[in-house]
Write a protein that binds this DNA or RNA. Sequence first.
DNA 1: GTTTTGTCTGAAAGAAACCTGAGAGTTAGT
DNA 2: ACTAACTCTCAGGTTTCTTTCAGACAAAAC
Lengths: 229, 229
Amino acid sequence: MTKTRVLIVDDEPNIRDLLATSLRFAGFDIQTAANGTSAVAAVTASEPDIILLDVMLPDMNGFSVTKKLRSAGIQAPILFLTARDEVEDKITGLTVGGDDYLTKPFSLDEVVARIQAILRRTKSSDAEPAVIDAGPVVINQDAHEVSVEGTLVDLSPTEYKLLRFLVMNADRVLTKAQILDHVWEYDFNGDMGIVESYVSYLRKKIDPISSRSLIQTKRGVGYIYKKND
Amino acid sequence: MTKTRVLIVDDEPNIRDLLATSLRFAGFDIQTAANGTSAVAAVTASEPDIILLDVMLPDMNGFSVTKKLRSAGIQAPILFLTARDEVEDKITGLTVGGDDYLTKPFSLDEVVARIQAILRRTKSSDAEPAVIDAGPVVINQDAHEVSVEGTLVDLSPTEYKLLRFLVMNADRVLTKAQILDHVWEYDFNGDMGIVESYVSYLRKKIDPISSRSLIQTKRGVGYIYKKND
DNA sequence: GTTTTGTCTGAAAGAAACCTGAGAGTTAGT
DNA sequence: ACTAACTCTCAGGTTTCTTTCAGACAAAAC
């Protein structure tokens, strides 16, 4: 099985590097472009499986790039990246087909999740399953539903992302820094106390259902979700 | 199999030498740099497998160095070194990809363990396994769990590090000085009585489970963990 | 057998890490 | 515009860990 090829198109080097590093580590084959022109060039050269495209590029906007790509016969789905204030107007009409969009700032875990979701929808056979089954906790990513030992639990967006990150890394200790860097938006600059708070919230919701303590504290290290006892 | 190349970047000569000596002994191929500029130069020249990077350098900070390295196409994972008080602010966003960080002062054993962990995650095939299986004692480094003859034991951070050090050096006598130097932070300046204390704590936790005495005292020399009887 | 030397372990102070409730500020929904 | 839900911060309370120390104990030396 060959790696999924992702093309990242963004003019901010920071974002580009952040995405590249993160996605490369997540197992994707990465290529980058800093503007629309070189994006079109890169696409025709390398035929990516999915494209991450900032809608505000120095030389052309998301519409133009998309149009150029489509007319060049490229059918790879696109995940549009957009600032929070340039929302609705600029995006409507873009997310047709398997496309989707994500507002900046985003969390790294969310980017990966969205890419997986798109690959799933577009039936790229090399996609992760929609349902994460990790012992007592089962997460249906399509329905955005979480159940513990069969009973549904209602989680806030952040609680959901946190639990998903823990569960996807089951049986491995995650430090608070890692959790913060993956689950929270990349420009968050509060301290790690918030991770403690949210772990507390999660426990209050899921522990009463389960017979054991699902999220364990490894004092001095971090937290761990254990599939089995 | 060729040695793993490590580049150490720190402006304090003491720390540099300490790390260099210790890691060289642990089997790594070491190179050093005292500031960001020469780090970038060294990296492009020698292509290390992993980089130890102090976040506070005289000429530029960790972010800048990282950025320069990444945009130069260097994908080697980075283990950031940071003082305890500059943790919260300076670290967020750094533990992306295979990267990790360690606060000063650290213990030498911990540095090696972290390097191994990173190499493991980034699938640099020349990595030690996550599970140390040494007879009755089995240590799962991903989960930070220790079991003796199959039953889990709950250890404090220091107990864990001490046992790991003993087990990794199984069947070899370790002096209290060696233990102190590897397991405790490099600026610790208490006496070796603390090693006795912690050996005592460990024995109290693991000996009752096992049928034999796992950590033996070599009077006048030190301690030894024996895999087999 | 007694002394000396080295090791073990319990107690206790202090520090560190963690948990959680309360509240302010924000966003989203009706 | 009002209400509900959510995010984030903070501080008090709690638990656990670290370190020191002194006396008990054990082994070797004389």
